[in-house]
Write a protein that binds this DNA or RNA. Sequence first.
DNA 1: AATGAATGAGCCTTCATTCAT
DNA 2: AATGAATGAAGGCTCATTCAT
Lengths: 204, 204, 204, 204
Amino acid sequence: MSQVAYLPVGKREQTKAQNRLAILDAAREVFGELGYDNATVRDIIRRTGLAAGTFYNYYRSKEEVATALSDDGARRFAPILKAERAKATDWESFVRAAISAYFNFLADEHKNWMARRPVDEPHPHIHGETPEMQAVFAEVRDCIVEQAAGDPSHADPDYIAAACIGIAREVGDKMLARRPFDVGGATEFAVSMILFGLRGPSGA
Amino acid sequence: MSQVAYLPVGKREQTKAQNRLAILDAAREVFGELGYDNATVRDIIRRTGLAAGTFYNYYRSKEEVATALSDDGARRFAPILKAERAKATDWESFVRAAISAYFNFLADEHKNWMARRPVDEPHPHIHGETPEMQAVFAEVRDCIVEQAAGDPSHADPDYIAAACIGIAREVGDKMLARRPFDVGGATEFAVSMILFGLRGPSGA
Amino acid sequence: MSQVAYLPVGKREQTKAQNRLAILDAAREVFGELGYDNATVRDIIRRTGLAAGTFYNYYRSKEEVATALSDDGARRFAPILKAERAKATDWESFVRAAISAYFNFLADEHKNWMARRPVDEPHPHIHGETPEMQAVFAEVRDCIVEQAAGDPSHADPDYIAAACIGIAREVGDKMLARRPFDVGGATEFAVSMILFGLRGPSGA
Amino acid sequence: MSQVAYLPVGKREQTKAQNRLAILDAAREVFGELGYDNATVRDIIRRTGLAAGTFYNYYRSKEEVATALSDDGARRFAPILKAERAKATDWESFVRAAISAYFNFLADEHKNWMARRPVDEPHPHIHGETPEMQAVFAEVRDCIVEQAAGDPSHADPDYIAAACIGIAREVGDKMLARRPFDVGGATEFAVSMILFGLRGPSGA
DNA sequence: AATGAATGAGCCTTCATTCAT
DNA sequence: AATGAATGAAGGCTCATTCAT
């Protein structure tokens, strides 16, 4: 029975961590499929396989799982974004990097989700408005505002961030609606749109 | 004293029209505050002050009110859009006209809504996803896709529409979050963003 | 405008009578199709084509229509029964006449009802327990009890009536479930059963 | 002190069994008093004193309780019937045994039911159409049809079954309406009626 | 801790009945 | 009288949450 515990990873702690994770995963799935608003705690519990009461040992409500999920999403996306930002030397490369990272993140999430279901199952309705996405957006927004604030040529960082987010969100949705996912093409379009608008890079 | 009755104007018809309107108004509000998904028929009923059963004399479900609301929104916005489109001779003027029309519509709707509530009431959370807005967006999307399709310089009208919608939606939201509503400024920004991107019209 | 009114059959009275009849007819149909318990006042009204409120000018409730229907049924069946009874000279002929009358009545009602619907329509569920039938049964029961009371060989007229009713009711149902309706055969069987039991008339 | 747990006898299982039983009992009562059609799930719930939701932890609908009740009734009556049938050597003894079993069952059920209510309570209206009775009747019908099919002297087992059921049902009801229950007398009458009809065994 | 049954608030909908027109 | 919209009580059912085991 001897066991060297470098971290609190006793049996108890293991199951606890596992359960917490299971709930988070279930919630991610359920929010993705049903949308945050439509999803119920029961849906999450059902997916989890745990008992109803167990849920409440970890989270007090749907909102709390959502928050945890947000934190998770932000925690996973923020470093990517930060790294890109460090590498980027100008607006253009930063925007490209951010958009690219976001679209890849989006496509990954979606693929993960698709991988888990039988191919022939009727395509269930997918809502993109998961708490995780919200968090990612917030991250991006902050980043853009900060970046734009340093750029003297434009007066309104908030509007700029809004426009970028808007483009990324809607184009991202469209990208997800097509097969196969053309992350590259969507990125090109979005970046070009953000930087040059409809006129395009040539300025023609 | 002969009288031609163009419309049924008996007392009954009056109350009927009033109730129908009250339900529609209540639904608009409730959808706006709670979001379409969260809203329940009960919420709408409560807001009208009518009896539970009365709702069902007018609409058979939440979906049906939503449809009515969509129709209403489309009916009010479509002519504006069409007129602008008829006047417009090039992309730029069309885009400006459409965005301007949309932002004005948005500001009007919002003002109307604000006018109806007591000042000191705690500001409720507002979702933009009302059926009305959806309808307006759909209208705009069709319009852009159609217009963009004729423009040979751009390959993907769907992406273009998505980007424009995205900008309009997010910038519109930001606009509504500021006091006073700067419709002109927001329009300028959005149009410039759509046409020239961050680089701006100067191409600098 | 002259009109000789032998009976109160003015315009007013005519419509009144018509409406009353329409309600009664609708109720008969609805009770027949849905069963008395399942039927709702709304069902009757709907079938009637009249306004909801109009119903209450004639009857105060479902029960009241049921009573009216019972009276009607009894009024139509009682004379038949009485005539048969007058003609009958012994138990056997009376029983035969009564059963025959009842089965014919049953088949008629049913045919009437069937005639009114399209042939290919999915056979709706039919409940036999209409208030009219109840009334007819009551009539028969009284008649049997009275008749049996005069027969010294059997002690318990109530039981006898019950047995006869039971046979008539169940065999009648079976008869209605077969195509074509074999009124004659069913009558023969029921009469034989009542008079001689399983052993049959031969006494073998 | 080892103990073999043949059945789960924890406190939880106990209450579960109790509740299941309570619901079944309540349903039996409610169906008996109001009739299956009139009875509502809410009525059953009210009678149990449980919370609304609890019902649905056990049964998904009124139909499902009805089925459970039917099974119960059949499970309790079928063995009796089968035993009698095994013992019986001819029609007469089988019929007598079946009728006797049914009337005894009926009287028992009724007594059980009466035992549970306060004496001075107003006698509620009783419908015989509980799902349990239906099941018992079905059982008997099958049995008679099968038995009658082997008897070459009679052409129509279905009619025979119908007639027997009819007699049993109606005479049974009459029996229950009298005090004290004369199971023996009712059985004698019913059997005589089934075998010999009104003419009686003497054939006079 | 985990479990899962119990709870009761709350949602959707239909219905009988009233009553202003 | 006839009309038909308004009313609110119920009914079926689901859900978040608690709590005894």
